[in-house]
């Protein structure tokens, strides 16, 4: 009886057949692509190899954390690029979180002016492409900064056309000298990322606070807590349950957006990779390295945020 059911009507057989067909199709496409790849690559004399990583790169990077010069090999250039990426990502994460939280909370302020300013900031930033904002900040604002004596200086911070100087700075022969100098490209990229991601994080924070039932505010108020205490002790801890997963998405987006550094000439991973490809023609290897690195960065951020998420969720029980 059971054997006589044709396969296209059999409840247990049909799903497996569909899956097998789909898997076969995908495998066929992938193997066709790979065989094309092998044929085309060997025709171009570019079969997969990693030996070129050890040859001298021959190009310089504006700023690096590691000691790196034009005579050093490609792998060191790519590693320096990765570290540059990580540096700007880490700094931007901190800045954007601070800005986003402040703006997100400002949208609940009693002050109508503050509320509407927060709204205007979010709407202006979210509806403009990041790349254009970055170019605007770099070419219009940062390259338009004064230098020398007329630079913007506060105690410990000097922002000039020559870069951002941190620590006790002194003007020597019209040039600022300070313990830490961050290049203008880094500063512009960092600023653009902070301002852009800050708007999205503000929305995440606002959504999280809004997701807390109004009854919680009322309960806090009826216990006699001041509005600031109700927010900090009652509402925010609950809002975090909604905020943290949203932040995870925004942090990953920020990490990916940092690859726009190439537009202002900051030597991040992608821009080093692009130069490397142009010089070596090693498209496959370079793309694999770049995609793999970003995957690792994403995974690291997700792991961190998942840990945080567990902490926040446990809080409730």
């Amino acid at each position: 009886m059971r054997a006589r059911i044709p396969w296209w009507r059999h409840r247990r057989v049909l799903p497996w057949l569909i899956q097998a067909a789909a898997a076969l199709l995908v495998l066929l496409v992938i193997s066709a692509l790979i065989s094309n790849l092998v044929v085309n690559l060997s025709a171009a004399g570019l079969l997969l190899s990693w030996r070129w990583l050890g040859t001298p790169a021959g190009f310089d990077l504006g700023e690096t954390l590691l000691p790196y010069g034009a005579g050093d090999p490609y792998w060191l250039a790519l590693l320096s690029g990765l570290l540059n990426s990580l540096r700007v990502i880490a700094a931007a994460l901190v800045g954007a979180t601070a800005l986003g939280t402040a703006v997100g909370l400002a949208s609940f302020s009693r002050n109508a002016l503050l509320r509407s300013l927060a709204r205007v900031y979010v709407e202006v930033i979210r509806n403009c492409p990041l790349l254009m904002q970055l170019l605007f900040w770099y070419f219009v604002v940062f390259l338009g900064l004064p230098d020398g004596a007329s630079a913007l200086h506060l105690p410990g911070v000097v922002l000039a056309k020559s870069g951002l100087h941190l620590g006790p700075a002194a003007l020597v022969d019209g040039v600022w000298r300070a313990p830490i100098r961050l290049s203008l490209e880094f500063t512009a990229l960092l600023w653009a990322l902070v301002v852009y991601s800050g708007a999205f994080i503000a929305e995440v924070v606002r959504g999280g606070v809004q997701a807390v039932p109004p009854g919680q505010w009322e309960a806090a108020r009826s216990l006699g807590l001041r509005p600031r205490d109700s927010l900090a002790r009652i509402v925010l801890p609950q809002a975090l349950r909604v905020i943290v997963p949203g932040l995870n998405n925004q942090y990953i987006a920020l990490a990916k957006n940092s690859s726009l550094a190439v537009a202002v000439g900051y030597g991040d991973l992608y821009s080093v990779a692009e130069t490397t490809l142009n010089q070596t023609g090693r498209a496959i290897e370079v793309v694999l390295i770049v995609l793999g690195s970003y995957l690792l960065i994403d995974l690291a951020i997700s792991a961190l945020m998942n840990g945080l998420n567990r902490l926040v969720q446990l809080h409730e029980r």
Binding site: N36, L37, N40, K256, V262, E274, V290, L291, Y294, L295
Partner: peptide, 22 residues
């Protein structure tokens, strides 16, 4: 979703030609 768009565009410009028959 794990890859930046710019690297995918870069992949499209530099590798798609290798993946498809001439």
């Amino acid at each position: 979703r794990g890859a930046p768009l710019i690297t995918l565009l870069f992949l499209g410009q530099n590798i798609l030609g290798f993946l498809l028959p001439g």
